[in-house]
Amino acid sequence: MKTSAKIRVMLVDDHFAILMGLRACLKPEGDIAVIAEAADGGEAIEQYRAHLPDITLMDLSLPRLDGVAAIRTICREFPEARIIALTTRQGDDDIHQALSAGARSYVMKNMPRQEMLRAIRAVHDGQEYLPQEVQTALLQHEKRAPLTPRELEVIRLLARGCSNKEIGMALGIAEITAKIHVSHLLSKMGVLDRSQAVMEALRHGIIHLDGSV
């Protein structure tokens, strides 16, 4: 990886206003320079190859190729890559996926400017940087048994407001079997009803507002 007097940073986000805000956040810092930008996962990979930044701030919700996939691809090709996942998502599944893909830190877009700068400098120094709330979410992830592929299908359908009959039709199973799946899912998640299951799934990042997993 290239080195220089300044920390060379690449910004990856598909929202122009976010990019402008990040630029404004970093511009006053004498030891940091923004040297590249990208608006989707595929472009992020291309720009990384072209510029070899010291630090990459990578949004997770990207078009064309999402941030986790882009992180995984970059880290596979460049094991020394130092990537900070930058997101609005607080779900523990999202945190786990980003870190498993190779991110060295996971920070929120609305975090205080000084904490963002601490993350950049810590990761540049070879450290992992996880805010306290992220560490807490990771502990919750470890305590919670992962959902099976079928359970993920069921929770996604519940998020769409599907009845047991509709879930059965979507999965090609009997309505009574769908009912059993839903019952087991509620028990596993420790909730009383479908609404609570969906809210918990959203809170943990198992599904997102568009119903995706």
Rank of each mutant, 00 (worst) to 15 (best):
207 I>H: 09
85 A>N: 08
49 R>T: 10
63 P>E: 00
172 G>E: 01
35 I>P: 04
200 E>R: 15
124 H>E: 05
159 A>C: 14
101 A>M: 04
1 M>N: 03
163 S>E: 04
128 E>D: 12
152 L>S: 01
47 Q>W: 10
128 E>L: 05
58 M>L: 10
13 D>S: 07
48 Y>G: 02
41 G>I: 06
47 Q>G: 07
193 D>E: 07
22 L>M: 14
49 R>Y: 11
28 P>K: 04
210 D>C: 08
44 A>L: 03
104 R>E: 10
192 L>M: 06
91 G>D: 01
79 P>Q: 00
24 A>K: 11
7 I>F: 08
82 R>N: 09
197 A>D: 09
72 R>H: 15
155 I>L: 07
82 R>V: 02
119 A>V: 12
34 V>F: 11
139 L>G: 07
195 S>L: 08
20 M>A: 13
175 E>G: 08
44 A>P: 12
8 R>L: 05
151 E>K: 07
92 D>P: 03
194 R>D: 12
30 G>K: 14
86 L>N: 10
45 I>F: 14
162 C>P: 00
200 E>I: 14
46 E>D: 12
188 K>P: 11
52 L>G: 04
121 R>L: 13
22 L>Y: 03
176 I>P: 01
6 K>L: 08
120 I>V: 15
137 A>R: 15
89 R>L: 15
190 G>E: 02
127 Q>K: 14
172 G>F: 10
19 L>Y: 01
120 I>M: 05
34 V>Q: 03
190 G>K: 05
150 R>Y: 02
76 R>C: 13
81 A>E: 00
164 N>C: 13
68 V>S: 03
184 H>A: 09
53 P>L: 01
23 R>L: 12
185 L>A: 03
188 K>M: 09
167 I>R: 02
203 R>A: 15
37 E>H: 07
36 A>G: 13
32 I>E: 02
31 D>T: 07
66 D>R: 03
93 D>P: 00
143 K>P: 01
